[in-house]
């Protein structure tokens, strides 16, 4: 193409395209700068040279919306980054999606809350060093009038009552489900199972009373509030949303409402050992006494009570490990997937 043939109008367009390309080069340059430094809540001292230099290592943590949306991980992130000089990149995805990303080798650490799904993940040889680090309780919330009359019941009995009255066509009885394969959705399914129902054949699509939102916890709460429905929620998201909802806690007690959060080092065959070691550092960081204390304090100022109860080494009743330092770098030979060969 002869450049001199270009009219001034053409030159304008060429210049514009050049500008766009420069933009493209700029952005690819940006990817090599230190991320995680620009947050308003991160003190500028994280860039001070007296701290361990960022060695450019990036560690991707995939976590669940109910854990991330409370702000806990944003609060812990700079503490970990300062201690180890790495960039901790946190993506919040919902437990089902987070586990899927981990299986594909796209993240280095998991922080999730769905024990059954986690066990299947561990049995598949995808993870090592699973440690529980905190818990809280799911709660059943609903309209203050409690149209199904479930206040004071155990979760199973309450679910049976809602289902019975809903299926019978009583007006104004609704239950909103996350319906998104999240940790909270798994917990809900466990309660249906414990109540004696087959979830897919007896609960799903059994009538207008059962609403599958397919959304995050915040949106699900809003939907329940609009419909005057019951729903199962983690306490943290409910507290964060409380002011905008016409929902009150109806049921807050019951073993099935226990919500245990675990951290897992993701294992992938071609993963460099430094990555695994650094991920193990994060596991050890979360179960360390100092950070456990910080987890217990988190949210007290804003909500009047802590959002998470740290394990503090006492997790016998949860049948999980919260004390052994994370040191494995490969799945132990006791894995079913390996020993069955």
């Amino acid at each position: 193409m002869n450049m001199h043939f270009l009219s001034p109008g053409h030159r304008g367009m060429v210049m514009f395209l050049v500008t766009l390309v420069l933009g493209a080069i700029l952005i690819s340059g940006c990817t090599t700068t230190n991320p995680g430094q620009g947050g308003a809540q991160i003190p500028p001292t994280t860039q001070s040279p007296s701290l361990p230099p960022h060695n450019g290592q990036k560690l991707i943590l995939a976590t669940t919306t109910s854990l991330y949306d409370t702000g806990l991980l944003d609060y812990l992130e700079p503490l970990f980054e300062e201690k180890y000089g790495v960039d901790l990149l946190i993506t919040s995805q919902g437990t089902g999606k987070a586990l899927e990303i981990a299986k594909r080798g796209d993240c280095d650490i998991l922080a999730v809350h769905s024990p059954d799904q986690e066990k299947a993940f561990m049995d598949g040889g995808y993870g090592i060093n699973r440690r529980c680090f905190a818990y809280n309780y799911f709660i059943v919330v609903g309209p203050a009038g409690d149209p199904a009359g479930i206040r004071g019941m155990a979760p199973q009995e309450a679910f049976r009552t809602i289902l019975g009255k809903g299926k019978a066509g009583n007006p104004g009885i609704f239950f909103v489900s996350r319906g998104d394969n999240s940790g909270t959705h798994s917990a809900e399914k466990n309660i249906w199972k414990a109540s004696g129902y087959n979830y897919t054949s007896e609960v799903q699509r059994s009538g207008a009373w059962y609403i599958e939102a397919g959304k995050g916890m915040g949106e699900t709460l809003q939907l329940a509030s609009e419909k005057g429905a019951y729903t199962l929620t983690d306490e943290g998201t409910y507290l964060a949303y409380r002011g905008k909802l016409n929902l009150v806690p109806i049921i807050e007690e019951g073993d099935l409402l226990l919500n245990v959060y675990s951290v897992i080092t993701v294992y992938a065959k071609n993963q460099p050992v430094e990555k695994i070691t650094m991920a193990n550092n994060f596991v050890n960081f979360l179960i360390s006494p100092g950070i456990q204390a910080k987890i217990g304090e988190y949210g007290k100022e804003k909500y009047g009570k802590g959002l998470f109860i740290p394990m503090n080494g006492g997790c016998m009743r949860f049948e999980c490990d919260c004390t052994t330092p994370a040191s494995e770098t490969t799945p132990s030979s006791s894995f079913p997937s390996l020993s069955s060969r």
């Binding site: 991320p35 995680g36 430094q37 620009g38 947050g39 991160i42 991707i60 995939a62 919306t65 949306d69 944003d74 992130e77 960039d87 990149l89 946190i90 993506t91 919040s92 995805q93 995050g216 916890m217 915040g218 949106e219 964060a240 949303y241 905008k244």
Partner: peptide
């Protein structure tokens, strides 16, 4: 992008997050 703060968070993903956190 994964909506990673300080790295891949853009206006639209920040809006989705703030909405789910109730910061309308």
């Amino acid at each position: 992008g994964g909506n990673i703060r300080g790295y891949t968070r853009v206006l639209t993903t920040a809006i989705a997050l703030e909405t789910s956190m109730g910061n309308i």
